[in-house]
Computed example of a mutant assay.
Amino acid sequence: MARFLGTYTPKLDDKGRLTLPAKFRDALAGGVMVTRGQDRSLSVYRIDDYDVIAEKAVAASRNEPEARAYLRYFFAGTDEQRLDGQGRVSLSAEHREYAELTKECVVIGSFDHLEIWDAEKWREYQAQHEEAFSNAGSSALDSIL
């Protein structure tokens, strides 16, 4: 599995294309799945990683109406893409609208995937959650680990 870390600031071009960080292009060469993410962001998964997550989610959701509804929304908002020669991904009008993307974007690494944010929305998100992050320390991870 590739590890996606860091923060990058590419610009969305007039045709809706966004250049993904060069350091990840080899890992993304087999294609990507662009989905609606949380908090009005877009998520970008390698196809193989997406397939593993999707198979587990579908199997776990068979008897849960809320899980099925979430997955329908998730899958309906997914687009398979191949990076072009310049490492760009084409973002659909629906995705750009959902994430409220302007020309200024931020791509962040979220370990197993990338997230695409509008730059201003990302700054707002960081400001809103900075205190909680600072105060949580390792206790936030204790419940996960």
Rank of each mutant, 00 (worst) to 15 (best):
Met1Asn: 09
Arg3Ala: 15
Leu5Tyr: 12
Thr7Ala: 13
Tyr8Pro: 03
Tyr8His: 06
Lys11Cys: 10
Leu12Tyr: 02
Leu12Arg: 00
Asp13Gly: 12
Lys15Gly: 00
Gly16Ile: 01
Leu18Trp: 01
Leu18Val: 03
Thr19Cys: 01
Ala22Asp: 11
Lys23Arg: 14
Arg25Gln: 04
Arg25Ser: 05
Ala29Asp: 03
Gly30Arg: 05
Gly30His: 03
Gly30Tyr: 04
Val32Ser: 06
Arg36Asp: 04
Gly37Glu: 06
Leu42Asp: 02
Ser43Arg: 13
Ser43Asp: 14
Asp49Trp: 01
Tyr50His: 12
Tyr50Leu: 12
Val58Thr: 10
Ala59His: 06
Ala60Lys: 12
Arg62Leu: 15
Asn63Val: 13
Glu64Pro: 02
Pro65Gln: 08
Glu66Gly: 15
Ala69Cys: 11
Tyr70Cys: 12
Phe74Met: 08
Phe74Val: 03
Ala76Ser: 09
Ala76Met: 14
Ala76His: 04
Gly77Met: 02
Leu83Lys: 05
Gly85Lys: 08
Gly85Arg: 03
Gly87Ser: 03
Ser92Gly: 00
Ser92Glu: 00
Ser92Cys: 01
Glu94Trp: 00
His95Glu: 00
Arg96Asp: 06
Ala99Asp: 04
Glu104Ser: 11
Ile108Ser: 11
Gly109Ser: 05
Phe111Leu: 15
His113Gly: 09
Ala119Pro: 11
Trp122Gly: 06
Arg123Pro: 11
Glu124Gln: 09
Tyr125Leu: 13
His129Met: 11
Ala132Thr: 14
Phe133Glu: 14
Ala136Val: 06
Ser138Thr: 14
Ser139Phe: 08
Ile144Leu: 14
